[in-house]
Simulated scan of single mutants.
Amino acid sequence: MAELRAEIDRIDARLVALLAERAAYIDRAAELKPALGLPARIDDRVEEVVGKVRARAIAEALDPDLAEALWRRLIDWSIAREEAKIGRV
C-alpha cells in the first residue's frame, strides 16, 4: 500500500505542476487578449476545449462526464483569473 500511495503522490505532484504551467499560459493570454480585442470568455473556445477533453477522456478510459466537470471548473477558474488580470491592465 505504501508504494501505491507514493505513486499517487507522485502523480498528484505532476498534476499540480501541469496546472501551474497551464496557469502561466492563462496569464499570457490575459496579457494578449486586450490588444486583440478579445474577452476573457470565448464560448466557442470553451466548448472546443471541453470537447477535446471529453474525447481524450474516452480514449484513456476515464469517465468523460467527470473530465468535463473538472475541466469546466478549471475553465471557470481560468477565465476569472484572466478577467482579474485584464481588469488591472
Results as ranks from 00 to 15, higher is better:
67 A>G: 09
45 R>N: 05
70 L>I: 13
31 E>D: 13
80 A>T: 08
31 E>V: 12
43 D>R: 11
4 L>H: 14
26 I>T: 12
16 V>M: 10
57 A>S: 07
33 K>M: 14
48 E>M: 06
68 E>C: 07
4 L>I: 11
48 E>S: 07
57 A>H: 03
52 K>M: 13
89 V>G: 14
30 A>H: 02
64 P>R: 02
44 D>L: 10
25 Y>Q: 14
87 G>K: 04
7 E>S: 11
36 L>H: 08
45 R>A: 13
35 A>S: 11
42 I>D: 07
76 D>W: 04
49 V>G: 00
70 L>Q: 07
88 R>L: 15
80 A>C: 02
85 K>D: 05
77 W>V: 01
81 R>E: 03
45 R>K: 07
71 W>P: 00
27 D>M: 08
64 P>V: 01
56 R>Y: 00
7 E>M: 15
74 L>G: 07
34 P>V: 09
4 L>K: 13
73 R>D: 10
53 V>F: 03
63 D>C: 04
72 R>S: 09
65 D>I: 00
49 V>N: 00
38 L>C: 04
31 E>I: 11
54 R>D: 07
83 E>A: 14
14 R>K: 15
13 A>T: 08
14 R>C: 13
11 I>K: 09
75 I>S: 08
68 E>G: 08
82 E>F: 00
76 D>P: 01
19 L>Q: 14
7 E>P: 02
25 Y>E: 15
83 E>L: 11
53 V>A: 12
61 A>V: 03
2 A>S: 14
62 L>F: 09
56 R>Q: 12
16 V>Q: 14
64 P>F: 03
56 R>N: 11
63 D>T: 10
12 D>F: 08
70 L>W: 07
5 R>P: 03
12 D>M: 12
52 K>S: 13
28 R>D: 14
8 I>F: 09
54 R>M: 06
19 L>C: 10
48 E>Y: 05
38 L>S: 06
27 D>L: 03
31 E>Q: 14
85 K>W: 00
69 A>H: 07
23 A>R: 13
43 D>M: 11
30 A>R: 06
39 P>V: 01
65 D>S: 09
38 L>H: 04
74 L>V: 04
33 K>H: 13
42 I>F: 03
35 A>E: 09
63 D>P: 03
71 W>R: 06
44 D>C: 05
37 G>K: 04
73 R>H: 08
24 A>G: 15
23 A>S: 13
21 E>N: 11
6 A>Y: 09
10 R>D: 15
30 A>L: 04
15 L>F: 09
83 E>C: 04
19 L>I: 04
67 A>S: 13
12 D>Q: 12
40 A>I: 05
47 E>T: 03
54 R>W: 02
77 W>S: 10
24 A>L: 13
15 L>M: 15
51 G>A: 00
72 R>T: 02
57 A>N: 09
66 L>R: 04
87 G>R: 02
37 G>N: 04
2 A>E: 13
69 A>N: 10
